[in-house]
Design a protein around this nucleic acid. Structure first.
Length: 485
RNA sequence: GCUCCCAUCGUCUAGCCUGGUCUAGGACAUCGCCUUUUCACGGCGGUAACAGGGGUUCGAAUCCCCUUGGGAGUACCA
């Protein structure tokens, strides 16, 4: 039997990094087993589901390279892939369970239920439904419903213990009477997660349910439903949780938790995938930088660990830096063109230069950064006449030698500008430094730091020789005039 | 409260199933050095962990029990 797995997000928010990780492992497992990865939209929560979120989640999955074989926009043999379009299916099986005496209509109002629960909680008893409506004759109940009375459908939870084998946690046993009769169809006719998800997983022939650990307790209810349906449950793989700094389940209050935010922050999809793979799962050879295809080749369900993992942005950044350095300069140029344009418009100085200039520029800066975003200020700086008077810069400017360099460079730069030159080239730079060395007798740090201070108005930065040839001469003139003293 | 799950450096983890090779390995972060006449990258090195207590055993990070701590669930959310 070929492997079929699914990712079933509910469109009630943007794609969460925890969700992305779950989707990723499902995808990788499907590919590793040459099976199918199915995307199903679990949109049975009418109030909270939004089309906007659905679209956004699908886009983020695609951006990460997590592509589905069957899904809302990719018909397969088991559609439709929206739960909201499968209502008749759930109705059929709910009715079947009622006919078989495995479920019953419940006419209790939410207020009644809340009151009953309160009493039980006060008595420190498990707040299970008391079974009032279970006693109603099915014929009578049926008539009431036909007569228009509002009812939910409750599942008769068998009183016995359930044991199943989780791929990560091994054998897990839920004792008898852990849950009471639970609702499977709401009063508004919409089914509840545990019911429709089980029906769908069964009908869609899902072989492995890979999901977050928070669903572990749900497995009990689902096991009961599989049993009632006469279906064989799939294999379960409960992934450890992603937690924040306080070790609690990662949520919005922990800061950036949606894929979209990292995407906007110019994190590379390959880097995010790489990092996500390493949270709760480890590479057989402890490799830490890789691409998704390499994981598909060596993926193994046995390498999950049970402990919750903290999402460490610092490590993500480092991984991003590693992936960034594997990019070609051409890739970097087009990425930076986009970023610069979206920030400053297409006519920014960077975008006006030729390709050679741009290639040299990204080559110069790429070693210094971990994400595209960090290159933006460096590029902006190239065209900025502002100077940064740090304590170090101040000291450099106070050296006896520096004013000599300033006078000389000023003359040289003015000269080139008068000749109509836009940039200096490397031989200009060589000429300047050898002049300062030989004629002005300035050497060592006085030479290089002094030149940097005058040419850039900064005490540190990228390789000066290259940097000088990338900076417009007029910018250099501006900086010199902005220098104090 | 009840049920379930979890417990190795600050963080992510290897090792655990199939006890000895673990004076516990790697990576991020951090610190130091080298490289770079700056910064970064890179290289080298340092600091840093088996939650506690009982067993079992010749021997336990590894197996068992208890304690403690943490987490999740306990919905007509998913």
């Amino acid at each position: 039997m070929s492997v079929r797995v699914r990712f079933a997000p509910s469109p009630t928010g943007y794609l969460h990094i925890g969700g992305a990780r779950t989707a990723l492992y499902n995808y990788i497992f499907a590919k590793a087993m040459k099976g199918s990865f199915i995307l199903r939209i679990d949109d049975t929560d009418l109030e909270r589901s939004k089309k906007e979120y659905e679209t956004s989640q699908m886009n983020d999955l695609k951006w990460l390279g997590i592509l589905w074989d069957e899904g809302p926009d990719k018909p397969g043999d088991f559609g439709p892939y929206y739960q909201s379009k499968r209502l008749n299916i759930y109705k059929k099986y709910a009715d079947q369970l009622i006919d078989q005496g495995l479920a019953y209509y419940c006419f209790c109002s939410e207020e009644t239920l809340a009151a009953k629960k309160e009493v039980l909680v006060e008595q420190k008893l498990a707040p299970h439904y008391d079974g009032t409506c279970k006693k109603i004759d099915p014929q009578v109940a049926h008539k009431k419903v036909e007569g228009g009375e509002v009812a939910t459908i409750r599942f008769k939870a068998p009183i016995k213990a359930y044991t199943f084998v989780d791929k990560v946690r091994k054998e897990v046993t839920f004792p008898a009477e852990m849950v009471g009769d639970f609702v499977i169809v709401r009063a508004n006719g919409f089914p509840v997660y545990n019911f429709c998800s089980t029906v769908d997983d069964w009908l869609m022939k899902i072989t492995h349910v890979i999901r977050a650990e928070e669903h572990l307790p749900n497995t009990l209810r689902q096991l009961m439903i599989y049993e009632a349906l006469g279906a064989t449950p799939p294999e379960f793989v409960h992934l450890s949780l992603l937690v924040g700094a306080d070790r609690q389940k990662l949520s919005k209050r922990h800061g950036a938790t949606s894929v979209t935010q990292y995407r906007d922050d110019s994190i590379l999809p390959n880097a995010l995938v790489n990092y996500l793979c390493l949270l709760g799962w480890s590479h057989p050879t402890e490799k830490s930088i890789f691409f998704i295809d390499e994981i598909i080749e060596c993926f193994n369900l046995d390498r999950f660990i049970k402990t919750a993992a903290f999402f460490d942005v610092q490590k993500l950044q480092w991984i991003n830096g590693q992936h960034l350095r594997m990019l070609s300069n051409e890739d970097l140029v087009s990425a930076m063109e986009q970023i610069v344009s979206s920030r400053h418009g297409a006519d920014h100085g960077f975008n006006q230069q030729n390709l050679d200039w741009k290639l040299i520029c990204v080559e110069l800066f790429k070693e210094k950064i971990e994400s595209f975003k960090e290159m933006l200020p460096m590029i902006e700086d190239l065209f900025s006449q502002d100077v940064f008077v740090s304590a170090d810069l101040k000291e450099i400017l106070e050296w006896e030698s520096t004013p000599l360099i300033k006078t000389y460079i000023t003359g040289e730069v003015d000269n080139l500008v008068n000749q109509g030159r836009i940039f200096a080239n490397e031989s200009d730079f060589s000429k300047w430094s050898s002049h300062i060395k030989k004629e002005l007798k300035i050497k060592g740090k006085f030479l290089f730091k002094g030149m940097r201070a005058i040419l850039t108005g900064r005490d540190h930065g990228a390789d000066l020789k290259v940097l000088s040839t990338l900076t417009p001469l007029t910018t250099i003139q501006g900086r010199i005039s902005n220098l104090p003293g």
